[in-house]
Simulated assay, not measured.
Amino acid sequence: MFISPGPELFQFGPLVLRWYGLLIALAILIGLSLSSRLAQLRKLEHNLVSDLLPALVLFSIVGARVYYVAFEWHNYAATPLKSFAIWEGGIAIHGALVAGILTLIFFCRKRHQPFWEVFDILVPSVAFGQALGRWGNFFNSEAFGVPTNLPWKLFIPISNRPLIYIDSEFFHPTFLYESFWNLFLFTALILIFRWGLHSVNKLPAGMMSCLYLIGYSLGRVWIEGLRIDPLCIGALPPTCEGGIRIAQLMSVILAAIGCAGFWWLYGQKRPLPDPGSRVN
């Protein structure tokens, strides 16, 4: 059984350190170190990741918030200024992915860098960051699933429960499911990356990116089906009955893009350039 200790790590006067903020900061620092190392192994431009990271983080957070507010506008229409209150919660990973990819495209064009190779060295860090960041949902007692009595059930305080589940105490810890799924995906990506460095047959540029899009999306589709706080079209949470769960729809789209990418890469036989031939 899981019981959250609360969202705040400590408070000193007006200064409050929240678990979610700490986890995001750790994910960014670890991602910077990991992606920089992978970029070095791929012989990409020196300081590429450190130059990219500030804009990538900023626009990904903005995209995540805009995406969430757009689909939850009924909660913000009366008080639109609250849409800027990101500290009150409300971001969506698919919004961050879309904004992050657009930022990466712009950056790579400006710096004359190969988009797919740069995307490849970022996706393991993205998967790890998602695995770590999901624990922020645990501390905030949010993003949980339907009621359950399984041994790994999650206790949710009454103030965080939807009215229709007000008498239920324990719920599916969907944060845990997605964290483990992303950790598995991260491990698979790193192992494939290392295999590609030493294999006679080089991995085609974009292969890691497509694998991430498919892998993450497959996990999100079934995990999202358990959640009681989905973003919906045509219905309202927690049941979303008769409507479409946005995260599931986006996951299907991203998985389809990943599958199309695999067909394009292997159908066209586009190999990764020999790292030893790149001059910076």
Rank of each mutant, 00 (worst) to 15 (best):
I233S: 05
C210M: 08
P147D: 11
G219C: 03
G136L: 09
I156N: 04
I158C: 06
L218N: 12
M207E: 14
G196T: 13
P273I: 12
F262Q: 05
P238T: 03
M208I: 14
T148A: 00
D229I: 03
P273W: 11
Y165T: 09
A256M: 07
N137S: 06
W263F: 14
I156Q: 01
F184H: 06
L249N: 04
I190Y: 02
N137L: 01
M208V: 12
H172W: 08
N160Y: 08
L231C: 02
A260M: 14
F170M: 13
L203D: 11
F262E: 06
R220S: 11
E169R: 14
E142Q: 07
P238H: 03
A260C: 13
L265E: 07
D167R: 14
L231Q: 10
L191F: 04
C240P: 02
K153D: 10
L163Y: 06
R220G: 09
F144W: 03
R227V: 07
P204T: 14
R227S: 06
F184W: 14
L236C: 02
A255D: 09
I246C: 08
D167T: 15
I214Y: 01
N160M: 10
G196F: 06
S209L: 10
L197I: 12
L189E: 09
T187D: 04
V221D: 00
I192L: 15
I190V: 13
I246K: 03
P173W: 02
L189V: 13
G243M: 06
S159Q: 11
L236P: 03
W263N: 10
N160L: 08
H198W: 12
N201A: 13
L265C: 07
I244R: 08
G136K: 11
G267T: 15
F175T: 08
M250F: 04
L185E: 06
I158D: 11
K269E: 14
Q248L: 05
I253D: 00
L254W: 09
D274R: 15
P147W: 08
I246W: 05
